[in-house]
Amino acid sequence: MQNTTPPARPAEARRADAARPLYRERLSPSLWMLGSAAVVAPMAALVFVQFDGALSLAIGFAVGILVVAGMILGSPVIEVRGTELRAGRAHIDVALLGEPVALTGDEARAARGTGLDSRGWHLIRGGVAGIVVLPDIDPDDPVSSWTISSRTPDRLAAAVRHAQTAR
């Protein structure tokens, strides 16, 4: 009779799984915002056109690239890794969060507007339609909930649930 028990996973493999994010999303600006920011390129070129035409075009192009790259790289990242939720610079253990609620459409619009919890922590981006609301169940935390914009709120909520059950 053969042994059908799978071999134990090495500790390195378990650490690698914990290091891999369950969910990751960058809340980058919309194409309209990036296009609007790129308008600084011709403005910068006009400032330097009095010195040299070719130099002013190069400076304008460089300024436009730097502004757009800065907007993208400076965008907040939402990540669920191990048992921790990170939203921008803030982070919390998922054990301190209640059941996540993924909202889209009119429900998300209301959650960002009149339904927004004034005692909550918010990471809301314009142009991102979905919202995930996570109750904060930590009795020592003055924050009552986390409200986070997400392009895929159902996936973010599922990742938080998975991290909560993986404890």
Rank of each mutant, 00 (worst) to 15 (best):
S75T: 01
P76D: 05
P76C: 06
V77W: 04
E79T: 13
E79G: 02
G82S: 07
G82H: 03
G82M: 04
G82P: 08
T83N: 13
T83Q: 12
T83P: 04
L85P: 05
R86Q: 10
A87Y: 03
A87F: 10
G88H: 01
G88D: 02
R89K: 12
A90T: 13
H91T: 07
H91F: 12
I92A: 09
I92T: 14
I92H: 02
D93R: 13
D93P: 06
D93C: 07
V94T: 08
V94M: 11
A95P: 06
A95V: 14
A95I: 08
L96A: 13
L96W: 12
L97A: 06
L97I: 02
L97W: 09
G98L: 15
G98K: 12
G98M: 13
E99T: 14
P100T: 06
V101S: 09
V101I: 06
V101F: 01
A102F: 03
A102W: 06
L103V: 04
L103E: 11
L103A: 06
T104Q: 12
G105A: 08
D106Q: 14
A108L: 05
A108F: 02
A110Y: 10
A110P: 01
A110T: 10
A110C: 03
A111W: 06
A111Y: 05
A111L: 08
R112M: 14
R112C: 14
R112N: 10
G113A: 13
T114V: 09
G115I: 03
L116A: 13
L116G: 03
D117L: 03
D117N: 11
D117F: 01
R119G: 12
R119Q: 10
W121Y: 09
L123R: 03
I124T: 15
I124V: 15
R125N: 10
R125Q: 10
G126A: 05
G126K: 10
G127N: 11
V128Y: 08
V128D: 07
A129C: 04
G130Y: 05
G130S: 09
I131C: 04
V132C: 10
V132W: 11
V133F: 00
V133S: 02
V133W: 00
V133A: 01
L134G: 07
L134I: 15
L134R: 02
L134V: 13
P135Y: 01
P135W: 01
I137K: 15
I137R: 15
I137N: 11
I137S: 15
I137W: 04
I137M: 10
D138V: 07
D138C: 07
P139Q: 07
D140V: 12
D141L: 04
D141Y: 00
P142T: 12
P142W: 12
P142Q: 14
P142A: 13
S144V: 01
S144P: 04
S145K: 01
S145C: 13
S145N: 14
W146G: 00
W146M: 00
T147P: 03
S149P: 08
S149F: 00
S149V: 00
S150Q: 08
S150Y: 05
R151I: 03
R151D: 11
R151M: 08
T152H: 15
P153V: 08
P153E: 05
P153G: 09
P153M: 05
P153F: 03
P153I: 03
D154Q: 15
D154W: 09
R155W: 05
A157R: 11
A158E: 15
A159Q: 11
V160W: 05
R161Y: 07
R161W: 03
R161F: 04
H162T: 12
